[in-house]
Computed example of a mutant assay.
Amino acid sequence: MSIDPLVLLVVAGGGGLGGMARLAVGNLVARYLGAGLPWGTLVVNLSGALLMGLAAGMLGLSGPETGLTWPLLAIGLLGGYTTVSTFSLQTLTLWQQRRKAAALGYVALTLGAGVAALAVGAWLAGGLP
């Protein structure tokens, strides 16, 4: 599979902007709500999911008709901003396809595997006994 170099450039640019936006929003929210809980991350992840839903609703899902818009906004910008937006969109898509068991399994597997991977990484780094 080959990827158009222009698509790579658009995704890279969007990802850079999304990462900077995540940092800015996360820090701003943490400044106002404190660091007792990861409020900044929560706001970023929930707003990213909302924005992904808006993008999918306005543009449709990825396809040639979206041109460079989908790679820029959904893959680059929102991918750099948060990964929960893609996870949420995929879960919603499964649910709308009436694949409820697959959607629930995907949520359980993603969350379970994510926590397990974090624990394994922490263990490998010596952070867990």
Rank of each mutant, 00 (worst) to 15 (best):
V107Q: 02
V11P: 00
G26L: 03
P38C: 04
L42V: 15
Q96H: 12
W39H: 12
G57L: 06
L23I: 04
P5R: 13
W70P: 00
N45F: 03
V44T: 04
L77F: 14
L28S: 13
S88A: 14
V120Y: 05
L89S: 09
L68S: 03
M58K: 13
V10L: 03
P64F: 11
S47D: 08
T91F: 05
G67C: 06
P71S: 08
L111S: 11
L8M: 14
M20V: 09
Y81N: 04
A74W: 02
G53I: 00
A12C: 08
L42T: 14
A101P: 06
A102C: 08
V7I: 15
T110H: 10
L9N: 02
L17Q: 03
L111V: 15
A12Y: 06
A108F: 14
L8T: 12
M20N: 09
A117K: 05
E65M: 06
A35N: 14
V10W: 01
T82N: 01
A113C: 10
Q96Y: 07
A117C: 11
L111E: 06
L61G: 11
P71H: 09
L118T: 14
A119S: 10
R99S: 11
Q96C: 05
K100E: 13
G63V: 07
L92H: 12
G80T: 01
T82S: 15
V29H: 04
P5S: 11
V84D: 00
V115N: 09
G34L: 07
L89C: 06
L37C: 06
L89D: 01
L37S: 05
A108G: 10
G112S: 09
V120W: 07
G26D: 01
L28N: 07
A49H: 00
G80S: 08
